[in-house]
Structure formats: C-alpha cells, structure tokens
C-alpha cells in the first residue's frame, strides 16, 4: 500500500507526501502526478515519510522528474524523514552524502538546494 497526499503551501509550492510501499506496483500514480505537475506552473517537493519498502522504479521517477523540472527552471526537491531508508537499500548506491554517480559531477535530486 502507498499513501500519497498533496499539500498546497502558502508560498505556492506543493508538497507531495509519500509513505508506505514505494514499489513498482504503486509507481504509476506518482509518475502521473509528477508529469501533471510538470505541465502546471508548480514547484514540487516530494516528502518521503515512513517507508516500508522502496525499489528502483521510484528512484527512476524521482531522478528523471528532477531533471525535467530543473530543465524548465522549476524547483524539485526530495526530502527524506529517514535518510537511512534509501541508504539502507544499499543497492541504490544513492545515499545522502554519497549521491548517485551523476551527483558527483552534476546535480542529483538528493542534493538539497544550498547544500
């Protein structure tokens, strides 16, 4: 099961809260939401809360969305409550402070603005 909740903020930014099983069976709604947001003049923060499981399909969507938003000059960031979860899934190779292969040179969705 996945939980997705939108929160419009006063400053116009939207926060997308995610928790539960961030796995392939549930990836499509996220993808559709992110695509939708890309068309609208929306700045998006994905907030990853209590995660039971995560697989690479989610990381793929976040990664490509980050690229697309950035290309349009819009902000897209990912906030993790439990930084461990992605790091613990050591296979992802993407852990805060470690970043993906791309992150070492370019930008990565896991690098927070101002970091």
């Amino acid at each position: 099961m996945i939980e997705m909740r939108m929160e419009k903020q006063a400053d116009g930014k939207t926060i997308l809260h995610l928790s539960g099983e961030l796995t392939i069976s549930n990836v499509r709604p996220l993808y559709e939401r992110v695509c939708e947001g890309l068309k609208a003049p929306e700045e998006l923060t994905v907030h990853i809360g209590n995660v039971d499981a995560i697989d690479c399909t989610f990381l793929q969507v976040l990664c490509t969305a980050h690229r697309a938003y950035t290309a349009k000059g819009k902000s897209f960031c990912v906030k993790l409550d439990d930084c461990g979860i992605i790091g613990k899934a050591g296979w992802s190779g993407i852990a805060p402070g470690k970043k993906c292969a791309k992150g070492l040179f370019g930008t990565c969705f896991l690098i927070q603005e101002g970091e």
């Binding site: 993808y31 992110v34 695509c35 890309l38 690479c56 990381l59 793929q60 969507v61 990664c63 490509t64 969305a65 690229r67 697309a68 050591g90 296979w91 992802s92 190779g93 993407i94 993906c100 292969a101 791309k102």
Partner: peptide, 14 residues
Amino acid sequence: IITHITRIPEIEEL
C-alpha cells in the same frame, strides 16, 4: 555498489 542512471530516459519517454 555503484548505481548507473544514465539510461533513465526523459520523463515523457519513461
């Protein structure tokens, strides 16, 4: 483990 993400396509093609 080193994760390669170069093949992740643009969002429209994903």
